[in-house]
Amino acid sequence: MRKTIAFVFAALFMFSQAAWARTIVIAQDATWPPMEFVSENKEIIGFSTDFMKAAAKEGGFQAEFKNVAWDGIFAGLDAGKYDAVCSSVTITDERKATMDFSTPYFKVRQALVVPKDSPATRIEDLKGKTAGGQIGTTGYFAIKKVDGVNSKSYDEIGLAMEDLFNGRIDGVVCDDPVAAQYALQKPEYAAKLKIAAVLDTGDEYYGVAVKKGNKEVLDLINKGIEGVITKGLDKELRKKWMGQ
């Protein structure tokens, strides 16, 4: 008898757990404005943060955000420290081999930022000079692919921009919303920097990365992303964070 009661309670407990929204812990490297960055109140804010909050509502899960350094963010995903990475991750074949991606939620291209007085109009114009990018990003890989341009990898894109601002390097390559944020929005940088070119590496799509085989989380996220895009919520967020 006692066993039955215990069993019923256990079953009830399990059901109540299932009825509660599943919490998905999402890692973001909050150094990538305007996509994800830390506000003055020390909260993670930005386009992708808002996007995932909306997706959580649509997909029926709870989103919890965790600020994780980019260098090692995928190692943490693999180790199960969080459920997903939503940190402006471009879907690439190399990455697809080690993790699973959601449906794309944003399109970017790689942009080259240079000082205002630089004559460079293409990345190839920086031959014999040094261009910087964030370590392990598609922007940094793009620099490495160009022969004759010295590549320099930074922990954060902000440090690369600071070095460009101080004249230590000749260019920075990163996703175009981020390039725009630094070269156009931030008054101090905007006075000295400009976007010289959009690289012909083609369109890139951001996806939310989950550990390979984690279908449960992936389905929830995909459902959420679909809901946000069909409702057109992403366009509002785009206006809010990028003014376009």
Partner: peptide
């Protein structure tokens, strides 16, 4: 160390 980090972040062989 940085060379190692660059390699690891590209190939995920942490």
């Amino acid at each position: 160390l940085r060379r190692g980090r660059e390699f690891a972040s590209e190939t995920f062989t942490y």
